[in-house]
Amino acid sequence: MYLVHAQLRSHDATAPPDALAQMLSCCAQDARLEHVTVHDEDEGRVVVGLFLTAADLDHAELAARRTCRRALTDHRELAGFTLDRCGAAMEPGYWDRLLDESAPGRIVPLQNPSKGHPFQPF
């Protein structure tokens, strides 16, 4: 399952409709959308989290974009909104923490190929 964030923006700072999650859900069609969360930001901006089951991240992001565009087109309550961005959010520093041997809670030990370890993460 993939979490894709979409940011919608109102041209006149209008708050999103209360039924935004349901509007997106009914526009998912073949997107394999599992769950939708809505988080108000500021001045007419809202971030929508779309949890999708997909073959890979590219397909999940494409399905999320299509779902959002369809909702913006099909629901007149969203007429003043645009899709600013849509994509999976990457946690800053995640991969660096995995490689840091001194980091607490390390989940991937570094392998040293010269010591005969079969797996090499780099």
Rank of each mutant, 00 (worst) to 15 (best):
M1P: 15
M1E: 08
Y2A: 04
V4D: 10
H5R: 13
A6V: 08
A6F: 05
S10F: 04
H11I: 03
H11D: 05
H11M: 02
H11C: 01
T14I: 04
T14H: 04
D18A: 13
A19E: 15
L20H: 02
L20A: 05
A21S: 11
Q22F: 06
S25Q: 10
C26G: 00
C27V: 01
A28K: 09
Q29E: 13
D30R: 15
R32Q: 14
L33G: 06
L33M: 03
H35W: 11
V38M: 05
E41N: 03
D42E: 11
G44E: 07
V46N: 02
V46D: 06
G49V: 10
G49Y: 09
L50Y: 08
L50N: 14
F51L: 12
T53L: 04
A54F: 04
A55W: 10
E61S: 15
L62N: 11
R65S: 13
R65E: 14
T67V: 11
R69I: 01
R69Q: 15
R70W: 09
A71T: 07
L72R: 08
D74I: 00
D74V: 02
H75I: 01
E77Y: 06
A79H: 15
L83N: 01
D84R: 12
R85G: 06
C86D: 00
G87D: 06
A88D: 05
A88T: 12
P92R: 06
D96Y: 02
L98G: 06
L98W: 06
L99R: 15
D100C: 01
E101W: 05
A103T: 01
P104D: 14
G105I: 00
G105C: 05
I107L: 14
V108K: 04
L110H: 12
N112I: 02
P113M: 02
H117R: 07
P118A: 14
